[in-house]
Amino acid sequence: MRTQVGIIGAGPAGLLLSHLLHLRGISSVVLEKRSRDYVERRVRAGVLEQGTVDTLIAAGVGERLLREGLPHHGIELRYDGERHRIAFEKLVPGRAITVYGQQEVVKDLIAARLEAGGDIRFEVEDVAAHSLADRPYLTFGGERLDCDVIAGCDGFHGVSRPAVPPGVLQTYERDYPFAWLGILAEATPSSDELIYARTERGFALHSMRSPTISRFYLQVPPDTDAADWPDERVWAELRTRLETVPGFTLTTGEIIEKSVTPMRGFVTEPMQYGRLYLAGDAAHIVPPTGAKGLNLAVADVRVLTEALTAFFHDGSTGALDGYSAACLKRVWRAQHFSWWMTTLLHTFDSDDAYGRRLQLSHLDYVTSSEAAATTLAENYVGLPW
């Protein structure tokens, strides 16, 4: 078999790349080790930046997003018994975020690719990348796929990044001393916008996925087992951390999913080697506080699409050679913003009274200074492409 671009991974990065390349007349094959049902049900991020929404609409896969997505024009910071709204419509006019689950984006992209005759192969075994320096090809399940370029979109634990020879890539990492316990509940959202709550007991986040499904997160120790958190305990802790302002009552319901997410930052440089180009979680991880993971993957894919278009249509290699440098500027900006939001809102050392006072002082500054609030807002909705 032969194609122009071999794509490892049928997550948002791989699927969007395949679709954008199709719109440019460039062929691709997507290889995914999981089943279609698994990737369409896998619950991940749900906050889409303005640029991500615009990209999906322009690619012709935004019909359901426009119909079912929940546009938000602000977020709430809650601390010290008070609520403070960061108003996007005032601080960054014309830009917002949209709440629309990552699994819904994946469903839309799979449907679009299959309708257009795209080649997506689910449940493939033993995927491996070879001859990356000059004549790349992929093997899987006893078959071989020759290609001009390989795109590694297979996540942090995938096979694409380890295929690079040792010593080529440099990695930067930071592990945080806590995790997030996340739940999905059949409960009407208690707020029209996301609530980021900083308390002495730890951070909490109130989010949503639809008018009837709510998403919550609790800061917990990194070794937490979700089984140690029965539903009653989860709701009690959420009430303690969120019902801290007058008039607010948390709506509860049946919990339909429960999981623990570690908090870490990770970047690999460069994001390319030979004819292999890494995108999304295969190249970088951010703590979810800043809601940047999926959006960074889309940004990578936009850059890679333009570079591949120049390569296949004009024979130009300049944009491909500069792919990593172009992406890393945005990656490191998102890393900093995610680190900043994380350190601003989470409880670290319980004995660090000095650090807690610094947090409160900074929160006071962000919620009282238009300049500081604008910095938060423009990073949160996504910097312009």
Rank of each mutant, 00 (worst) to 15 (best):
Q170N: 12
P162H: 10
F140H: 14
E193Y: 10
C147S: 02
I183H: 10
G167L: 02
A185L: 05
A185S: 15
V159T: 12
F156M: 12
W180E: 06
V164D: 02
S191C: 13
R198D: 03
V159A: 12
I195W: 12
Y137I: 01
G167C: 04
P165G: 07
C147Q: 04
I195H: 08
V168Q: 03
D192L: 04
T171S: 14
G158M: 00
E186G: 15
D134R: 14
L132P: 03
T139G: 04
H157P: 01
G182H: 07
E143R: 15
A163T: 06
A163C: 02
Y176Q: 08
L184E: 13
V168F: 00
G152Y: 00
A163H: 06
T139Y: 04
S191K: 09
Y196D: 09
F203C: 07
V168S: 02
I195N: 10
A133F: 03
A185M: 05
R144Y: 00
A151H: 05
E143L: 04
L194M: 14
Y176L: 10
D134C: 09
Y196Q: 11
R201V: 02
A179K: 08
A204R: 10
L169E: 13
G182P: 01
Y137Q: 05
T139S: 15
L138V: 04
E193H: 14
D175F: 11
C147L: 00
E173H: 13
D154C: 00
L138A: 06
R144N: 04
T199R: 09
R135H: 15
I150T: 10
G152S: 05
A133E: 14
S191H: 14
L138G: 10
S160D: 01
P165C: 01
G141F: 04
P177R: 09
T199S: 14
Y137W: 09
G155R: 13
I150P: 06
E173G: 08
L181M: 10
T199N: 09
P177A: 11
A197H: 08
R201N: 10
D175H: 13
G202S: 10
E193G: 13
P189V: 02
H157K: 14
G152I: 00
A163N: 07
D192Y: 02
E186Y: 08
D146T: 06
P166H: 07
P165E: 01
G155K: 11
Q170P: 02
T199C: 06
Y172W: 11
D134Q: 13
G158P: 00
R201E: 12
D148M: 01
R135F: 05
Y176T: 12
Y172C: 06
R161W: 00
S191R: 11
D154N: 08
Y137N: 04
S160T: 14
P136T: 05
A185V: 08
E173P: 03
R174N: 13
D175S: 14
R201T: 10
D148V: 01
W180D: 11
R135T: 14
R174P: 02
G202P: 08
A204V: 06
S160E: 02
G202F: 05
T188F: 05
Y176D: 11
Y196F: 15
L145H: 02
I183D: 08
